[in-house]
Nucleic acid binder design. Structure first.
Lengths: 320, 320
DNA sequence: TTAATTTATGAAACGCATTTCAGAGCAAGA
DNA sequence: TCTTGCTCTGAAATGCGTTTCATAAATTAA
């Protein structure tokens, strides 16, 4: 395959001039430009992108770390990221971690090795002591409140939004409120846990371990929740479900065994996924696509670290 | 930052020897190996991955083309691809095309430019006349029957599986059968359309344009289908829905307006997504994760073109 | 007219690791 | 003893484009 040198020879110019033509630099006379373009055409020349990467030290690749690609929450987030990446001529390298720290470290190492220009971590597993070791190698963008760290972030205030949702349920007369969440650890889970604990003490209710459901990620997990629910002596009258799909699963399973919603059990979802609209699930809208877009822009912005809080909106429908 | 030359100097060996150590070549004496490793350690040396790529002419990157990242069908497929990629130390570059041909061409060009080692196209938009132009640049793997082409493929026989599903419905007493599908064009849609037409003529039914529903991709699209259905004078008594999520949406919307399933309307899904189990939707199981794995292995296999047909299985539940 | 810019061009340095090739040294087999 | 055949090592070639620097030529400004 022809390389830039061949083109230069063929067009009777220097490689510098060829490079200028390829990169649309000014200061190339019309005659030479034409000659170069002709030579490129005739030799069917293709720039070796890896040589460009080596030379420029950048790859136009952005890493995206998600625990699961196949999850509606991250699906929307990645959709936003992908759309914006497209606009900016960047491509995405996808890291599916399954919440294994090693996978996340692999992604960080790709940043270190310069195989990607920056890294977006949609849900972090590694501790900050690890992340911080890599901030020097390139922009890292988080999808959580990271205002005290050497990265950029786009996030929502989980404490406030959880509190709002809880208060909403309380105003509707619920005081036996439980919640379903994806994982025990993680920064958002902590914030939500705190909001929950504070809410309970505000309304003078006792913390009941039974009212918290973990591993609530998908439609099918709703079944487990409802099973546990129906075996309880003193079940909650309302459930905050941090993900509409799981909420939809719960609603579906409830219908099946005759638990009336919202009369027997009120359900409040999160995200405002399309499914929540169809199933009339009251939910807290999180503009995931928009957040994704923002994450990518921050990743491109490189040097300066910015932090953007996105606000959520409660959407009243028929499950509370 | 240190490079391989610095390490060579520091360790008192040639760059060749350093490279040998880095790549675990044999024929390096223990003494020199140790010296090199020490020098690497002390200089905090990082191999420049782009130089490696340039030199080796490969990137350990595999492109994956999907119309939407945020769709359960492709979600499972990508999950399988990602898992297998991980095992083989490959990373994925994700191309979300939204079914725009230009996006797919971009991916093909990245193959041409050697920024990716091979390309998996999960759902093709471009015609073969375009794909064929790129087969010389690296392995291309399709998720459709491509036995007559210069690529590898993992696929299911949509004609047969659609036929089986239709016959199953027919055996249950249905002859007014319609179907819901994602898009009008595309190879799988054509195969299914043919199976449908052949089925109709076999049972002596007239082709009814109204019985076919397009753009049926997601849960929310079920609503539209049901709306159209309920306004029909002579609606079908059974519906084949090429995607469980859409089927679930249809089931949900039907319940809402009192269409009984399967009595008033039988629903048959596709994929055997988790949601279909929960909602007891009769479906045709497509082992998407396994297919994804296979696609990746074929992508790695490079030179030789293989074609693997995956068989599907009808799973009887309660919506037919 | 002279000085200061701007335009245009190419040689050479730079980014960096892998691989081929040639050769030295040593051991095993004939 | 002589021939093969490993083991080990490094110089040099290879992959390829970008960018800096020096310089010449053409303009514009003073």
């Amino acid at each position: 395959m022809a390389n830039i040198k061949d083109i230069a020879k063929k067009a009777g110019v220097s490689v510098t001039t060829v490079s200028r033509v390829l990169n649309n630099h000014p200061y190339v006379s019309e005659g030479k430009r034409k000659a170069v373009l002709l030579a490129i055409e005739e030799s069917n020349y293709q720039r070796n992108i890896n040589a460009v990467h080596l030379s420029k030290g950048e790859t136009l690749l952005i890493g995206v770390v998600v625990p699961f690609t196949n999850h509606p929450y991250f699906g929307l987030l990645v959709e936003g990221i992908a759309n914006e990446a497209m606009k900016n001529n960047y491509k995405l390298v996808l890291f599916q971690t399954n919440y294994e720290a090693d996978r996340e470290i692999e992604a960080l190492k790709m940043l270190q090795y310069k195989q990607i220009d920056s890294l977006i971590i949609c849900s972090r597993i590694c501790g900050w002591e690890i992340i911080n070791q890599f901030t020097e190698y390139g922009p890292i963008v988080l999808c959580e409140d990271a205002r005290n760290h050497n990265v950029s972030s786009t996030f929502i205030d989980h404490y406030i939004s959880f509190t709002n949702a809880l208060e909403y349920l309380h105003n509707k007369g619920h005081y036996k409120v439980g919640y379903c969440i994806g994982r025990k650890s993680g920064s958002s889970s902590r914030q939500r846990g705190k909001a929950y604990a504070d809410f309970l003490s505000r309304i003078n209710e006792r913390y009941n371990e039974e009212y918290i459901f973990y591993e609530c990620l998908n439609f099918e997990h709703g079944e487990d929740v409802v099973r546990r629910l129906s075996s309880m002596d003193n079940p909650p009258t309302a459930l905050l479900v941090t993900n509409d799909i799981a909420a939809a699963g719960i609603v579906t399973s409830c219908r099946e065994i005759g638990i009336r919603i919202p009369d027997d059990l009120a359900i409040m979802g999160f995200d405002n996924q399309p499914i929540s609209k169809i199933m009339h699930i009251t939910t807290l809208e999180i503009p995931l696509v928009q957040m994704g877009r923002n994450l990518l822009l921050q990743a491109l912005d490189g040097e300066k670290h910015t932090h953007e809080e996105i606000s959520v909106k409660l959407i009243e429908r028929q499950t509370v």
